[in-house]
């Protein structure tokens, strides 16, 4: 637009000061949190940035839609609805999603240099890093909960009983939250250190997917050799195995892996250890961003 439009009125008003309200620190954090979640799904970025996250989301929904379809068509029992096993089952897609999208939040800022603009703004490095982490957790949750929701609602529509399904879905929900937090921590660390998107994706897939395979194998061997304690604690090597194990021990869910924790006490210990590791990871992440201040 030029300073003068067709009516000939000059619109080039000079610089205007802003005397209106400003948001608090919490308001800034909320805005950053939301923009982060949206950025993971490609919103606020280029059009093609939306392709991958939504393609993966579509793929992870397929089994849920099929299960619900079969249920309502053939009238199978609601026992088929195995919420807590769903994400371990589609772990490959979850890993792909996280590996591909964590760099959006953790490599892009550092590589393009936007980080120096963020750090020159009120939030500061610690709040920035933790908010970015929370954005990734929420985005992963959206990814893993959507199929569960389809299963749950579809199952109810196909005649499953709400009273029977609710506790089972609640366990799966808690498991999903734990999974999202653990996976977000691993992939954010990988992405903020590698910086290159390709490297970050390969690194995350390496750690998460290969970690999953190795852990399952380790458990198998340890279990058959009679080293049950080792088999239990091996779960700490993979978020997927760990969440499965905790769900089994504390939520009475069915397992996908060779050696889930068999007592509530073991489950709690495993959960505690996993959370401690997670906090350590978050502290490392914060340190990474604090060193970017200069």
């Amino acid at each position: 637009m030029s300073a003068q439009d067709s009516t000939g009125v000059i619109h080039d008003i000079g610089y205007r000061r802003y005397a209106g309200a400003r948001t608090t620190r919490a308001g800034i954090i909320r805005a950053l949190l939301l923009s982060g979640v949206l950025a993971v799904f490609g919103f606020g970025r280029s059009g093609k940035a939306k392709v991958l996250p939504f393609a993966l989301l579509g793929m992870t929904l397929v089994p849920a839609v099929i299960q619900v379809g079969i249920m309502s068509l053939i009238g199978l029992s609601a026992d088929l609805l195995n919420y807590s096993a769903y994400n371990a089952g589609s772990s490959f897609l979850v890993v792909l999603f996280v590996a591909a999208q964590a760099p959006v939040l953790f490599s892009r800022d550092l590589r393009s240099g936007v980080i120096s603009l963020y750090l020159a703004r009120p939030l500061g490095a610690t709040a920035f890093a933790l908010t970015r982490w929370a954005s990734l957790v929420l985005a992963i949750l959206a990814f893993v909960l959507t199929p569960l929701l389809v299963l749950f609602i579809g199952g109810l529509a196909a005649g499953a009983s709400l009273r029977e399904e609710l506790p089972r879905v609640a366990v799966a929900l808690a498991g999903a939250v734990l999974l999202a937090m653990l996976v977000a921590t691993v992939s954010s660390l990988v992405a903020s250190w590698t910086l290159r998107r390709g490297l970050a994706i390969a690194g995350s897939i390496m750690v998460l997917l290969v970690g999953l395979g190795v852990t399952a194998g380790l458990q198998e061997v340890a279990d058959t050799e009679g080293a049950t304690t080792l088999a239990h604690w091996a779960a700490l090597l993979s978020p997927f195995v760990l969440v499965d194990s905790v769900q089994v021990a504390l939520g009475d869910a069915s397992t996908q892996f060779p050696a889930p924790a068999d007592t509530v006490a073991t489950g709690l210990l495993l959960l505690g250890a996993a959370l401690v590791l997670m906090f350590l990871g978050m502290a490392l992440l914060v340190r990474r961003y604090r060193s970017k201040g200069a």
Binding site: T23, I28, A31, L32, R108, D109, G113, L117, A120, P122
Partner: peptide, 26 residues
């Protein structure tokens, strides 16, 4: 800053709006 600090995959308007919000604008 003196060095590059712009995300290449964002539209300029979205970026400047976002930075305004990060500085506390509603």
């Amino acid at each position: 800053p003196e060095h590059d600090c712009l995300p290449p995959d964002m539209r300029c308007i979205d970026f400047v709006v976002h930075m305004g919000r990060m500085s506390g604008l509603p």
